[in-house]
């Protein structure tokens, strides 16, 4: 049973990343009812932007700035870059399709995702890149939890950043003008438009926020797991998507809960069943949750409008 605490740490780390990705899916779906499959690749681009910043700020001679500032700069660049990308994708691949058959934006999203992957392969490298172990955070740093158990600083960073992001997002949605507008649009897009909400702008803001979160997730994955690759977005995107659905798509706390559930399910499946079946377990969780609670854990089932 002494694997239990370590498994929980593993699950929390992974779950935090999934939660950050799931939020973007969930927000976009809540407003546009669109399965934004390109979201996983926005996360991938975030990881690459972080890598670029890392290469510039940490040359082989040593870091140019204090490490926390470097990490902040990485976050900042990834957030800005991903926001621009997300807005561009929305503007050029989704907006023209807003009144089209529902499957058209789905296909558009999938192919935007492939185009992004292959652009990275073509222009950066087909080789996987690595942030490097110990480049930013010393290998042996961490909090001792007694015995052999240690929680690495990078993991603390991942979990901490996710919590901060979550609080900020909740504040944003609950208490700001844009947040209220987003809730209104999510509730009824036409009614909101009639009440004077600029729907297009709200959608743009949604994409900015969602993509920025994905960018943060990309950088965090680079910092804690080192390895980044141009195809990393697809599976992670599917997992994030699974998480948002399991939690109840369209619901912010649901996305977080779903992310943590999927992360935990994978961690526990790896340790107590076999790592071989962790992906299968994640998808099995999805199927079972939806069959039992068709609206997801914290979501409401869409009322069919006639």
């Amino acid at each position: 049973m002494d694997q239990l605490p370590q498994t929980i740490i593993n699950g929390l780390t992974l779950g935090s990343v999934y939660a950050l990705i799931a939020l973007g899916y969930s927000m976009v779906y809540g407003i546009l009812k669109l399965l934004n499959f390109a979201h996983g690749d926005v996360y991938m681009i975030g990881a690459y932007i972080g890598y670029a910043v890392l290469v510039v700020l940490v040359p082989s001679t040593g870091p140019l700035l204090p490490i926390p500032i470097i990490i902040l700069v990485m976050f900042l660049f990834a957030m800005v870059g991903c926001s621009i990308l997300g807005v561009a994708i929305e503007r050029f691949a989704y907006r023209p399709l807003r009144n089209a058959p529902r499957i058209a934006p789905l296909i558009s999203a999938l192919w935007v995702s492939f185009v992004l992957q292959n652009l990275i392969q073509l222009t950066i490298s087909p080789r996987p890149l690595s942030y490097g172990s110990g480049t930013l955070i010393p290998v042996n740093s961490g909090i001792n939890l007694g015995g052999d158990l240690r929680i690495h600083t990078a993991r603390v960073l991942v979990i901490g950043t996710t919590i901060v992001m979550m609080i900020a997002l909740t504040y944003f949605i609950r208490s700001t003008k844009w947040g209220r507008a987003m809730r209104a649009v999510a509730m009824d897009i036409d009614a909101a438009a009639m009440m004077g909400v600029d729907v297009n702008r709200v959608i743009v803001v949604t994409f900015i926020v969602g993509s920025a979160l994905a960018g943060v997730a990309g950088v965090l994955v680079g910092i804690v797991f080192f390895s980044i690759q141009h195809t990393m977005g697809f599976l992670a995107g599917l997992k994030g998507f699974t998480a948002s659905v399991v939690g109840g798509i369209g619901s912010i706390p649901g996305a977080v809960a779903g992310g943590l559930l999927i992360g935990m399910a994978e961690a526990f499946a790896s340790v107590y069943i076999s790592v071989t079946f962790k992906d299968a377990v994640a998808f099995l969780v999805l199927v079972i949750v939806l069959l039992i609670r068709p609206g997801g854990l914290l979501g409401r089932l869409l009322v069919q409008k006639v």
Binding site: K33, L35, T242, L284, Q304
Partner: peptide
Amino acid sequence: LYGDYLAIVTLGFGLLFFQLAQT
């Protein structure tokens, strides 16, 4: 399940199949 939820569950089923065939 309706609409997108149906899509998601069936997608889960499809992914599950691939994973199981692999493993």
